[in-house]
Design a protein around this nucleic acid. Sequence first.
RNA 1: GCCCCCAUCGACUAGCGGUCCAGGUCGCGGCCCUUUCAAGGCCGUAGCGCGGGUUCGAAUCCCGCUGGGGGCACCA
Length: 410
Amino acid sequence: MAPSPTGFLHIGGVRTFLFNWLFARQHDGQNLLRIENTDTTREVAEAVDHIQSSLAWLGIAWDAEPTFQLDRIDDCRGIAEQLVAEGKAYEDEGAIRFRMPNEGVTAWDDAVRGHVEVPNETIEDLVLVRSDGRPTYNFASPMEDVWDEITHVIRGDDHISNTPKQINIIRAVGGKVPTYAHVPSIFGADGKKLSKRHGAVGVDEFRDAGYLPEAMVNFLALLGWAPDGETTIMSRDELVERFSLERVSPSPAQFDYAKLDWMNGMYLRALPEDEFAHRLIVWLGEHGYDWDAELVRKAAPLVQEKIARFDEFPAFAGFLFHDVEASVDGSADVVLAARDALAELDPFTAETIEASLRAVLDTLGLKPRQGFQPIRVAVTGSTVSPGLFESIELLGRETTLARLTAAASA
RNA sequence: GCCCCCAUCGACUAGCGGUCCAGGUCGCGGCCCUUUCAAGGCCGUAGCGCGGGUUCGAAUCCCGCUGGGGGCACCA
């Protein structure tokens, strides 16, 4: 995985990493992170930390300390010189170039695409070592695959054209060629590579929007892979158990934000009540809301079935935490009648509130739809809210009465 | 220009020669439930890019075309 200079982790890279992770777990193998920085000018330490924390959030950490391509510059140079001595490479204006075969084809059996072959005459003699002594990516990468005894290289399909070059290098040094699996890229709705203009693309953005890591993992796994035609919701363990490279689709997939929302909603609803509340409180705390945790805990069950992402909570239940402005012109009578009924109510619970308000509507001859809506607007400041009676109970008598009065006279 | 890859409902996909007048999920539409919004239940909408082959039979195999993508750096 190559970190970008900005240190932001693209969701497409995560999907590729996830496939590596699932495959490695399934085969009791190790999943290695290699920072491919032959470019010395870039500061990658921060980026590595960032990748690490993003993947940790998703629960798909790697299995060993990351290695840096930079650290093996000398080893690469040694190999390059040896290749020159053997006549397999040659010097060219201070650089060292690899002698690619001129005839025949270079072929491999790709674990997701099947047999792929490229005419050797179309492969140019690539630079192994630059004139300033730094090895190139296409040299360092296959060498590290050999040194690290990599058995499977699962990477984006933009690397397909690099593969025959790397295979030839590995053969030249007598190394064992790993199994390659090239996974398709992820597109936005317009069929172009997924980028910022399509919506969220960085892991942090999804986290900030209030997606659950387990939903992200499930969704990402299904982007280009399916165990069968039926199953959609799968735990991490089930994913590990059922994943297979053979069933990875060779064609690119579009990132469907609507389906992600649906899936996140499924995971949110499946959470035990207290777990949902806990995660919601943590999310709010991390995103600048200093709302009373106890009240959030009590409000959580009212919204668990209604939101698909945590970031929908403030708009949905914010009225419990701050003042609202509302006017109910034309319906002041119900609102005032409701106020009077609630003023004397005891005990003040969702159950008694409902009974009391229904009685008010009966008296006024209003249908539930007609009667409750003005009250909802007065109390929550919105036509859309959690359950009215539970909301009123949580708000408390004092605030409720004040809001009813204010709305009726606004 | 050259090389490589890809091609089933709007989207993700199942399908690996007959059991497919193509199945599941999201979305979308309708109905039910209902204090709003959701959730849930039921019903529905919509697809094998085109043209040639092979075969008794093709979404499935082959070729061509078209369309999309990637690559052709002393970038990774």
